[in-house]
Design a protein around this nucleic acid. Structure first.
Lengths: 220, 220
DNA sequence: CAAGTGGAGATTGTATCCAATTGACCTCAG
DNA sequence: CTGAGGTCAATTGGATACAATCTCCACTTG
């Protein structure tokens, strides 16, 4: 029997956490909106207790804002926040790549290549959720090769905080074309063991995204 | 009436969170130890509900590890973890200082100087808790002058994660002497607007601490 | 009309109670 | 002796009930 791993969340709070993330990314819960606990708990078929525990995790990640006795509110990210997040990502991801490239294993590089194929295929099919998932696999496959778990975790939180904007960026087909080329160049640099080049390419990769978003977003 | 600000935590979970942090820093809750909810809740005079919500925050900060159906355990930080935290701090705090120095206000610099005086006075008196508090005021006064709230928050979590080791380092009087000189040099560089020099001094400041700790800690 | 006051209703915060899960120990077949 | 299975106490997970707090708005008062 091929080790089928049940991935069912063992507790309600974890299941709720997954659903909450989905709801925020999908825009079902809109920025600034109050999270009405009774209503949401009922919708998820649980009581408020596990919902509140899940919200505490999201609070720690900055996805919701907690105001005592007022409740939880979906965080709003303006363009300045976005720039700050991307600046921090530059610092952390650059370090990760510099550490990762010299020590990355062949199988890990193969996994990156596979992820990129899925990204391009999903993009061509217009399957944006699958593309987003494979895109994460690519980027985090590289980052995690640095074997710095805390750093990976921080970067993951930063990605989560800006998921909404990322899907906005990727919803444009011409952006996706540019990104595919950038990805391939990064993979090539990783293959050659050229960490500096990979870092530079990724900096440009992020800068392109954030400046495109600046043109789209409310200028405050 | 001089605006006396009540600083009482408005909710039990926040009060418990403060107490939990204290218990972890003080070593009352030891690394690896399970947090027994019934016992702790009773000690704090609250039910398990607010305690669990406070634990969720600490989980998000990596101060405790959550294992479903098993409970919360105080995180253990080995020397590799410590090095990783310090490396991330190097990246984030260097950025903060580079941004902060060119735009820091005169009153903010004055606050830094004041904090340093308290650090040295408390150190001379052997009042380590007060020294730790003032030391934070100094470092975060500088970091927050960068006006990058997310970055400040990340750095704060990293500090919290290594609080135990910091007090260990500062418990040695000769270390404290070195640190005072380093602090004064940093302040001088900030006054002169020499961001690069401040960054370099702070890198050395951290490196001195972490390598001293490496000599003290179990070498795995 | 401005500013303050006092509920009513909505919402959050927490205590209590019970169900579910775990882990240690015991039993017993092989 | 060894390991599979069973039992039970300890502990965590979650539902419910109620207390505390906030928000809104009509009302008063100057």
């Amino acid at each position: 029997m091929t080790r089928q791993q049940f991935r069912r969340p063992p507790t309600a709070q974890e299941a709720v956490l997954v659903e909450l993330r989905r709801a925020i990314i999908s825009g079902e819960l809109r920025p600034g909106e109050q999270v009405l606990q009774d209503a949401l708990a009922e919708r998820f078929g649980v009581s408020r207790v596990p919902l509140r525990e899940a919200l505490k995790i999201l609070e720690g990640e900055g996805q919701v804002i907690y105001r005592p006795h007022r409740g939880y509110f979906v965080a709003e990210l303006d363009i300045d926040d976005l720039r700050e997040v991307y600046r921090i990502r530059d610092l952390l991801e650059s370090e990760a790549v510099r550490v990762a490239v010299p020590q990355i294993a062949a199988e890990e590089i193969a996994a990156l290549a596979e992820a990129l194929e899925v990204v391009e295929h999903a993009s061509a099919c217009g399957d944006l959720p699958m593309m987003a998932e494979a895109n994460r696999r690519f980027h985090f496959g590289l980052i995690e090769a640095a074997r710095m778990p805390r750093l990976s975790r921080l970067v993951r939180v930063l990605w989560d905080a800006t998921d909404v904007y990322r899907s906005l960026y990727y919803s444009d087909g011409s952006h996706r074309e540019v990104v595919h080329n950038e990805h391939r160049a990064v993979l090539e640099a990783v293959r050659l063991g050229d960490a500096d080049r990979a870092v530079t390419l990724l900096l440009a990769h992020r800068e392109r995204a954030v400046s495109a978003l600046e043109r789209v977003l409310p200028p405050r």
